[in-house]
Every structure is written in C-alpha cells, then in structure tokens.
Design a protein around this nucleic acid. Sequence first.
DNA 1: TTTTCCATGTAACTCGTTACATGATTTC
DNA 2: GAAATCATGTAACGAGTTACATGGAAAA
Lengths: 185, 185
Amino acid sequence: MERELLLLGLLRQHTMHGYQLHELIDRALASCTDLKKSTAYFLLEKMEKAGWVTQTQTQAGKRPPRRVYQLTTHGEAEFQRLLRANLSAHTPVRFADDIGLAFLDALKSEEALALLAHRLTALTAELAAARAAPPHEGRLQLLIEHQRRHLAAEVAWLESVIAHLQPSPASPPPAAPVARKTRRA
Amino acid sequence: MERELLLLGLLRQHTMHGYQLHELIDRALASCTDLKKSTAYFLLEKMEKAGWVTQTQTQAGKRPPRRVYQLTTHGEAEFQRLLRANLSAHTPVRFADDIGLAFLDALKSEEALALLAHRLTALTAELAAARAAPPHEGRLQLLIEHQRRHLAAEVAWLESVIAHLQPSPASPPPAAPVARKTRRA
DNA sequence: TTTTCCATGTAACTCGTTACATGATTTC
DNA sequence: GAAATCATGTAACGAGTTACATGGAAAA
C-alpha cells in the first residue's frame, strides 16, 4: 500500500498528472523508492475507480490530454488511514543479497573476495550517489537521510565481512552431486 | 533468483525434500528470509523441469511419498553461476515504511509520536527476537549477524527521529481537498 | 533533422502469496 | 478422541515489471 500512500500524499499537496508524479518520484526519491510509469498510471486509474481521486483533463495542443488528479474527501480519509498504518507498523527488511554469503565456502577465498570487492564498489557508488543528491524540502529529507545512514552502515558491514574473510583457505564442494550411494531418512 | 540459490545451496549440502527445506528455512533463517511452502514446492518442481535437480521418492507408510531432491551437475553449475551473481552485485534496499515519514506533518505531532512509538515497540521486539535466535553453523551466522546489526541501527535511527520530532507543534492538512483558506508551499 | 522530451496507455509475463484440499501419523 | 504434525499439492489472485505502441512538441 505504500505506493498508494505516496501518490495520495503527493496529490494532497499539489494536483498532478501521472507523468509529473512519476518524474517527481524518479528524480527526488530515486534513492529511497521507485515507481514505474506503468505502475503510476495503473494506480491512478485504480484509485479513481475507488473514488479516492478525481480526474480533470487539460488539453495542451494536440498531445494526449493531461489527466490531472485531485484527492476526494474519501481519498483524504484513505490517506489518513494508510498513513497511520504505515507509521505505526514496521515492515521487516530482507537482504536478498545475503543469501550468497551463506555459501561463501563454495568458492576459493580469492574469488569470493574479488566478488565481494565488486559488490563493495557498487555499494560505495550508491552511497556516493545518495550523498550527492541535493537536499529536499521538509520531511522528505528524512528519507534521504535514512537511506544515507543505511548505506553507510552497509559499507561498514561489508568491509568487515571482507576483512574477516582474508585468512581462510580454499574448500572444494562438500558433497559432490554425482554421489549415488548416499541416502538419508 | 535468491530463492533458487538458497534451495540449491542447501540441497548441495544434504539431499532434502520440500517440507524439510521449508522447515529449515522457517526455523533457522526466519529473521533473514522466508520461503512459503507453496513457493518451495513450486520452485523445486521448476528446478526439476530445468534439470537442476533430480527427485527420488521414498515411501514412509501410507503418507504422501517424500520427494527427495538432489543436485545434478547442471544444478551445481547453476548454483555457481547464481552464487557469483549474488555475491558480486548489490541489490538496493527499499524501506517501504519510510514513505509515511514524508507526510508526518499531516498529523498532530502527539499522534505521530504515538504511532512511531508503536513502531518502535515492534522494531525492538524484532531485534530482541533476532538476538534470541540460537547461533548457527558456519556462514549462516553472517546473515543473522547482519540482520542484528541492521535492526540495531534501525532502532537507533527511529529513536533519533522520534527525538527530533518532539518540539514541533501541530499542523493541519496543508491543502485540503475541500479547499480552505490555509495554503502552504 | 534527428533526437529527446512530453504524455498516455496496453498486453503479456514473472514472481510470489493466499486459501484451499487431502489424508496418514504422532502426540496429548 | 482431538489436535498438531507430516507431506504433498492446486487454483486463483495480486502486485509489479517489461516491452511495446502512439504521436506531437521542443531542443540539438
């Protein structure tokens, strides 16, 4: 529901059309969240059907008319509801790219280190990008700040993993896939 | 692909059936990742079709036969491929529950604080749970450790947000859908 | 004049979850 | 004898992405 919340929250401040919303999110919030164009359009349509927003066409030359959206009273109520739900709950974070760490020993430690070094580069670049982003108005700054803190912590973490990985030797696969005899109940 | 990687990695160590895999993940890795039963079964079937694993039935009384899976050579190759991809890349993390923070000003600060306090409770509980989890073998411990570190950082972050939120007064909705006199940019 | 930007949309697809169904077996 | 556990599955749905299609306007 957080995408709906985002759209409603933005629309609450200014009426906007889909392209505009997508662009705003893509520019200002790229480091924190993302919302594909198709998703934005889809969601806006859905919210209109649900009566959360209304739509007003404004023509500009002969291009596709802008569908400018505006919150309804019902939409405002939904916003309040979603906001409270969002603020009061914590959504656990899953680190998809941690899974590989569980199987580090499947690789020679040199290679593992090289791969993690590569990851560290990517991570550092992301942190740099997040730091480079211009300051944002009001509470938006909170999100950016959070992301920065988080990324910095991730860099530190990854560096420590790499550091602790140095002294271990190579280990070949533990249980070969060809093995036949092995059976377990 | 990280779910496939996880299954392959576990199957590489011991041959196992779906129920067993799900249980292992649900018990040992609950704080780091999750994998629903249906997903596990589905993935195993998919991987079998793809030739990454083979399946051996073992009957136990009259219950549904255990389908015990084992890596093939092809599966081992895939595992290696997925592992490298996983280790070398960084997957950006999105904090879904940050969105609400952007719109904190839509609520009276008392209420915002109460909601965030509620979130903090949930977060603290999660941290406690992560800390309570028993130590795990080998590299698995890395994941647990990461999650713990992360959660601790999140607690600190949330506490700082709450602390900085204290001194600000109430602010009514900035641009009401019904159109009031009050407007702010 | 060619590229980029504006502005919309649709269809197919992937991934994963929910909810349901089955039936033996062990535990209380 | 009831409840939890073992062990499998299926069907429907939901959310979101990808890739595609359209066409005028502005900028290079």
